[in-house]
Each structure stands twice: as structure tokens, then as C-alpha cells.
């Protein structure tokens, strides 16, 4: 489902004397359907950078990222948008939403965008919000005013409302209590069971051990200091 080939990345800081910072070199791995792969490595090893590249948020310098038939490294913006709409979901660490949009609409949106009718989309959104223990009285409000933990759960609900064939999860269990952590882990297990290919970053080792089929050390792709 996800194939990464010879991927490299560097940042050029034009406004700081043109400093070039190489951050990744020769990254390569595959993720099959129904498989969950954990990215590990020390802080700064490039886990988040890799996730952002997979999502098309960071531009690859060279190499290929094939997800569902699209090469994210070279695709046109509209191809990446279509991929994000229909194939590739992303649960980031931070919720980024439009002000004034209700929590229910935020969660239902991925379904509405993929042509599901409003009733179906809202029913699924309600189910997920209830499961993630977001009090019903908050559903009509914008999540911008919610606490960090609530925002994180809304973000997860949004990421799981539509059945994406591929999912990127950045610390999905961070800042969650035991109950909600359990809900998230079972959501991940259900996604695997329906055949989703998942790449995740989990600092929570117990969670990682439970859902990940294998791990990849991002340090292996870090360019050597002398280059």
C-alpha cells in the first residue's frame, strides 16, 4: 500500500546564509495492507519529517513515495488532495480547524467530502465522539476552545470517521487517559483488521508493542554527520 524508495530530504535556509541541512537520505520501506509500522528513533531523527513527507506536507528532494498508485514525491497538488481525500488519512498532534465549525461537522467532514450523505456522516461522527468520551453538550461547539486532550480526541475521531486505506498517526495516544487510550488502540486494531496500512509514531512503548507489527528506526535514514 505504501512504498518508500530512496527518499531524501534537506532544508535550505536561504535567509540564514543559504545553510543546507540534510535530514534524510536513502529512506526505503514498504507497508502492506493491514499492517501497522512504528517509526522509532531519538528526537530529531526525522520521524515527523518522514511522516510529513508521506502526507505531502514536506517536499521530497528525491526518491519516491507511492501510496495507492500516486507518487506523493512528484504528484500535482490536486492529485495529492484527492489522495488525502480518498486514500490517506493523517492524525497529527495538533488539531487545525476552521473557527466556527462545530465539532460534529469537523468529524463528519471526511465522510461528507467523499460523497456520503449527511445522515450517515453524522451518525458515524456521533458514534466516534461518544466512543471517545467527548460530552455530547460539546458536539455543537467549535473544538478551538477545548482542552488539549479533548482536541486530540476530536482529531482522532476525525481521522477515523472515514475508512482511509492508509493512515498516518503521529502520537495518537499522547496526553490521553487510560480509558481513551484503550479506545484509540482498539480503533487502530479495527482499522488494521479492515485492511488499512498504518504508519505511526508512538512514544508510548506499550501501545507500540500492542498495535505495531514491526518498527523502523528513522536513525537509519539520517545522513552521516560528515556529509
Amino acid at each position: 500500500m505504501i512504498q518508500v524508495e530512496n527518499l531524501s530530504k534537506s532544508f535550505t535556509l536561504h535567509n540564514q546564509g543559504g545553510t543546507v541541512i540534510p535530514v534524510m537520505e536513502g529512506a526505503a520501506f514498504d507497508v502492506a495492507r493491514g499492517e501497522c509500522v512504528g517509526l522509532i528513533g531519538a528526537s530529531g531523527a526525522g520521524k515527523s519529517t518522514l511522516m510529513r513527507m508521506l502526507y505531502g506536507n514536506y517536499l521530497a528532494a528525491s526518491g519516491h513515495i507511492r501510496i495507492g498508485g500516486v507518487d506523493v514525491a512528484t504528484a500535482q497538488p490536486r492529485e495529492i488532495l484527492a489522495l488525502r481525500r480518498e486514500t490517506l488519512g493523517y492524525v497529527s498532534q495538533f488539531l487545525r480547524v476552521v473557527p466556527r465549525v462545530s465539532t460534529l461537522d469537523v468529524v463528519a467532514e471526511p465522510l461528507l467530502r467523499t460523497g456520503h450523505d449527511r445522515a450517515t456522516a453524522e451518525a458515524r461522527a456521533r458514534e466516534l465522539l461518544a466512543r471517545l468520551n467527548i460530552p455530547e453538550r460539546l458536539w455543537g461547539l467549535s473544538p478551538t476552545t477545548f482542552s488539549g486532550g479533548e482536541q486530540q480526541r476530536v482529531n482522532i475521531a476525525r481521522g477515523f470517521s472515514y475508512d482511509y486505506p492508509a493512515l498516518l498517526l503521529d502520537e495518537p495516544t499522547a496526553s490521553l487517559d487510560v480509558t481513551n487510550r484503550e479506545v484509540v488502540l482498539s480503533l487502530i486494531e479495527e482499522a488494521k483488521a479492515r485492511g488499512a496500512a498504518i504508519v505511526g509514531i508512538f512514544h508510548d512503548e506499550a501501545a507500540r508493542d500492542r498495535v505495531c507489527d514491526r518498527v523502523i528506526d528513522a536513525a537509519a535514514f539520517t545522513p552521516k554527520a560528515d556529509t
Binding site: 506536507n57 514536506y58 517536499l59 497538488p77
Partner: peptide, 9 residues
């Protein structure tokens, strides 16, 4: 490019 890509990278 893609809006978030141009703004973030």
C-alpha cells in the same frame, strides 16, 4: 505547490 506544503516547507 500544495498550500500547506508551500507554507510549511
Amino acid at each position: 505547490g500544495l498550500t500547506d506544503q508551500v507554507l510549511d516547507d
